[in-house]
Computed example of a mutant assay.
Amino acid sequence: MSKGRSNHSSSSDKDLSLSKAKILRGRKNFKRLFEQDAYIYRKKYVNIRFQIVDNTSFGCLMGFIVRKNLGKANKRNRMKRLLKEAYRLHQHTLSAFLREKELAFHGALMANAVDVPFKDVEHDVVALLEQVRDQLPAISSANP
């Protein structure tokens, strides 16, 4: 059992890292998420917008959005960090299914408020990821 750079043992089977390669970037990608054919699920503190992308590579890219009218920059940045951490801890909920089905997924977690405890953000993110995972078979069969 060796330890990596993060000082965690590498014997676990789940990859809990969230590298830059797993984060959705680029104006075109975000613009595509806000088109008519994107799916949206809502919870009290967090929403998710996503699309199954026609792409030869498969995997899951997730973006994190906090609107400017929700508060000052320090509060928005904190909320974005909370969203990233909740997703990082529970990304396996969705990524394992996508890897199995060989689907390309682009999504964005969007905050509805900024002064929210981490446990509430985490609860909403987990519920949304499970909801997306459960709905993906029907969605992917509808999108050839």
Rank of each mutant, 00 (worst) to 15 (best):
S57E: 10
E35L: 14
I65L: 05
D37K: 14
G71Q: 04
N112C: 13
V121Y: 10
F105M: 13
F118S: 10
L98V: 15
K44N: 14
K22P: 03
K101H: 13
L82T: 00
L136G: 03
S17Q: 14
K3A: 12
N74S: 12
S57C: 06
H90F: 06
A142K: 06
R76F: 03
M1H: 09
H123S: 15
E130M: 07
V114K: 08
K101A: 14
I48F: 10
A104S: 15
N143A: 01
E130R: 07
A104Y: 15
S140D: 02
V46F: 05
V114F: 04
K20M: 03
L82S: 11
S141T: 05
D54T: 09
A138W: 06
A21R: 02
H106D: 14
S140A: 07
S95K: 04
I65K: 02
V114C: 14
T93M: 10
D134T: 01
K72E: 12
P117S: 14
D13M: 13
Q131M: 08
L89N: 07
H90L: 07
H92R: 12
G71C: 09
E100H: 14
K84M: 13
F34K: 04
N55A: 10
E35P: 07
K28Y: 12
F50V: 03
S17F: 06
R76S: 00
L82A: 12
A21F: 04
N143K: 11
I40L: 15
K72G: 05
H90S: 11
D13Y: 14
S95Q: 09
F50R: 05
S6H: 05
V121I: 15
A73R: 03
N7Y: 01
R25Y: 08
I48H: 07
F105N: 11
S11N: 14
V126K: 11
V46I: 13
E100F: 14
D134C: 00
F64V: 00
K75I: 08
K75G: 06
L16D: 07
K31I: 08
H106A: 11
I48D: 05
S140C: 04
K75A: 14
K28M: 08
S17A: 12
S6D: 07
R81E: 06
R133M: 00
D120V: 12
S2E: 15
N77K: 10
K20P: 00
L18R: 01
F118K: 12
S140E: 02
S11M: 13
K43L: 09
N69M: 09
G107R: 02
L109G: 05
Q91V: 05
F118R: 13
V132H: 01
